[in-house]
Design a binder for these strands. Structure first.
Lengths: 137, 137
DNA sequence: ATCCTAAACAGGAATTATTCCTATCTAAAA
DNA sequence: TTTTAGATAGGAATAATTCCTGTTTAGGAT
């Protein structure tokens, strides 16, 4: 994604376009590993040593609120950030801390149908995602 | 569950039977709310003021390793403990921090079949659970 | 019943992810 | 160019969890 598209993405949500936001969002878009705030910080400070940890946290949170990023907790309790906004599940590797994306429209349809037909007493389902644990082959 | 059955549960895993372990495990068995270590601590210290926080953490972890409890992270990153060992999913209330159990054999069968028929490239599924978010009605 | 020892415990310090605070700075609207 | 609301840097504060150390104890051996 080029700078203009990144800028458009940020400003379209009513956020000021700053160098820090550009760098942080670009880092997310280029990563496949659902980085933590610290991983983002380590990556961007190689080229931008003056960006502070607090800014990384605050910026990531702003992006989540603006609907530009998703966040979720991993098993160690660390917050992970994800630029993929469509509904999808995650594959957790039992042998490492790898987390891969898993997206399957058939599965989504299956679950949607299931919960439509199987109402839960006293609970209204709004969102379902899967935690899939296993081994990388 | 009476004291003898609780004791049996603990010693059958090769663990020494101590007063602290009895009290902590009993607290878990009597709760429905997937308590955190701190919630367990607060509950048991009413009657057992000398049990330390460190012991609660260490004991809960020992129980998990022994296969007596399950643990999982909630959205706030807190570790939750659960005496229900069978596979089941959780209902997360969006309006509060309530977490209810959800168990449905049909759903488990459905998912089992799905992942048998839909192998994931480079990944071997071992365990699937659902994160179900929504509203308590 | 008493002794012995590995394991468990209490109490508190240390660690670590994350949030909070405040003075300074800057994007972008006027 | 000026103005100012919002953004940032840097560091202090917070809070869940782990670690450390000296003391105690469960339960097998004597």
């Amino acid at each position: 994604m080029n700078v203009d598209r990144l800028k458009e993405k940020i400003t379209s949500k009513g956020m000021k376009f700053t160098h820090q936001r550009l760098v942080i969002y670009r880092s997310l878009c280029n990563s496949q590993d659902h980085p933590t705030a610290e991983m983002v910080y380590n990556q961007i400070t190689e080229e931008n040593p003056s960006i502070s940890m607090g800014t990384v946290y605050k910026t990531l949170e702003s992006f989540v609120n603006a609907g530009i990023l998703q966040k979720f907790r991993d098993d160690q309790g660390l917050m992970r950030f994800d630029p993929v906004m469509e509904t999808h599940s995650h594959l957790y590797c039992n042998d490492s801390s790898d987390i891969r994306d898993y997206k399957n429209p058939d599965l989504e349809e299956l679950l949607h149908t299931f919960f439509k037909e199987n109402q839960i007493d006293g609970f209204e389902v709004e969102e379902v995602s899967l935690v899939i644990k296993g081994k990388t082959k």
